[in-house]
Design a protein around this nucleic acid. Structure first.
Length: 470
RNA sequence: CGGGGAGUAGCGCAGCGGAAGCGCACCUGCUUUGGGGGCAGGAGGUCGCGGGUUCAAAUCCCGCCUCCCCGACCA
């Protein structure tokens, strides 16, 4: 019985498909103020999984969590010229408090470099205080003219790390470590999203940074999404906020700094990297619920058997839940869990009971397999591992297929219609970058031919990866 | 901020001078349950706001507000 599709098909209207998924999978709603969003419980559970995985990796690099205030004196922003210039257009400024006009307006943080560094100046005295490695989980506000749920909202949730080091080399190494060991590792191994790591051009660099490193991913429609950034700030903020320390020889030096972050934008990336016409497809490593045990009908002890399966799977370390709402039609429930991207379903009904088996369904492939009732835990565990690998593999293959090696701006423009183009950075240059930008195409990152990170933007043989971006 | 559209039930829309409707969702009951089931009944509206024209305005006119889409900025 052919029903109207639940979602607008991707190849018909991709942005519409995205909105449909967000609504139908109950991920988010628009907030009452334009550009704000309500993150619904299912998406928030995904965010909590992201937080747990990222937080553990951050702590493994030695950083510790802290919390700094939402409100920042406007004057702080002004201390670093490029920084204030970069953020001014998108600031939310509070002019009144307690029923009175404030002597000095306060801004709602768009990022926390300025407040945090004003305290670093207090806390750092000696080389013995370095490196100082701080992270905070917080909300930030950047007023957006064209918001899109998760991808671009006026308020979003993120993690922002801020560090101070004794040497430029130490800061550079740390910024790279965060990019590799925290972000890239998390995105590839948990989100199953292959990312291109590289260096941003001067044009795309963070306001106030001397170098910005990025993780770029390709979405289902061939467009790029920046999923995370790690910046070397040089001594820009150290000078602006007077963060100095006594070195081993008794001299005074400014610290070298980094800052880095990933946000709820990753939820949008996850949707668009793996989603298909039936909805979300979550990688098992991230999925809040890895296995949904679906009771078809509560007859002949099937209910007890289903509850037993959940207990068995839970004991085996699997995040399993039971759907025994037999008053809701089976088709409805199947469609719902597919929309929500639950990686594996285990169906159990009278037919399975009679055969002494259960039915295992993989979300990523749609494949259904009958498996003996006694082998559920090992077979489910294996299926989860296979689904995780298959999602990464599929996303990697798409990225390779839709990336073209070209040699001119014209060819790059053509290639950017469906994906990325790779070409020599020397064939683009800042003039070429401007010309591409006029057509909505940006240099996503610069890489060395072997994929390693450039130390400077001036290296001779750099490769530019260009494309359209969210 | 420039260009283009739209405001009617929770969501998506029709109606465009003469009793406010349709699909989905929601509630009740029965029946069904292995891929968005079926039948019956029901609830839900200052038709964005304000003014005007008219015997009569969701519909025509004027003003305002809001939202969406396309371009310049952005995690």
């Amino acid at each position: 019985m052919a029903k109207a599709p639940v979602l607008t098909p991707q190849n018909e209207d991709y942005p519409r498909w995205y909105q449909d998924v967000v609504a139908k999978a109950e991920l988010a709603d628009n907030g009452p103020v334009r550009g704000t969003m309500v993150i619904r419980p299912y998406a928030y559970a995904m965010w909590e999984r992201m937080q747990a995985e990222v937080d553990g990796r951050i702590k493994a690099t030695g950083a510790r969590n802290a919390y700094f205030p939402l409100f920042i004196p406007e004057s702080y922003l002004r201390r670093e010229a490029e920084h204030v210039e970069g953020f001014s257009p998108e600031l939310a400024v509070v002019t009144h408090g307690g029923g009175k006009e404030l002597d000095e307006p306060v801004v709602v943080r768009p990022t926390s470099e300025t407040v945090i560094n004003s305290y670093f100046a207090k806390w750092v005295q000696s080389y013995r205080d370095l490196p100082l490695l701080i992270n905070q989980w917080a909300n930030v506000v950047r007023w957006e003219l064209r918001p899109r749920l998760f991808l671009r909202t006026s308020e979003f949730l993120w993690q922002e790390g801020h560090t101070a080091h004794a040497t430029a080399a130490d800061a550079a190494a740390y910024a790279e470590r965060i990019l590799r060991d925290v972000y890239e590792d998390f995105m590839v191994n948990v989100l199953a999203i292959p990312v291109l790591t590289g260096r941003k051009t001067a044009r795309e660099r963070f306001a106030g940074a001397v170098n910005t490193l990025t993780c770029e991913a390709m979405m289902g429609d061939g467009k790029a999404l920046q999923l995370g950034t790690s910046h070397e700030l040089g001594q820009n903020f150290a000078r602006a906020f007077d963060i100095t320390f006594s070195d081993e020889d008794g001299g005074q030096s400014h610290v070298w700094q980094t800052s880095w972050g990933v946000s709820t934008r990753m939820l949008g990336g996850l949707i668009m990297a793996h989603g298909d016409d039936a909805g979300l497809r979550l990688p098992p490593q991230l999925a809040p619920t890895q296995v949904m045990v679906l009771l078809v009908r509560a007859e002949g002890g099937a209910g007890e058997r289903a509850a037993g399966l959940v207990a068995e799977l839970t004991a085996a370390g699997v995040r399993a839940e039971l759907d025994d709402r037999v008053d809701v039609s089976f088709g409805r429930r199947s469609v719902d869990w597919e929309l929500k991207g639950v990686p594996v379903r285990v169906e159990i009904g009278p037919r399975d009971l009679a055969r002494g088996s259960v039915t295992l369904v993989r979300r990523d492939t749609g494949e259904k397999t009958g498996i003996p009732a006694g082998e559920v835990a090992p077979r489910v565990t294996a299926a989860l591992a296979q689904a995780q690998a298959a999602l990464l593999d599929g996303a990697r293959r798409r990225q390779e297929e839709r990336t073209a090696d070209v040699s001119s701006l014209e060819e790059a423009t053509e290639a950017a219609r469906s994906g990325f183009a790779r070409l020599a950075w020397s064939a683009v240059g800042e003039d070429g970058e401007t010309r591409l930008a006029e057509q909505g195409i940006t240099v996503r990152c610069l890489r060395r031919p072997d994929g390693s990170l450039p130390v400077t933007g001036d290296e001779g043989d750099l490769v530019a990866v260009v494309g359209r971006a969210y």
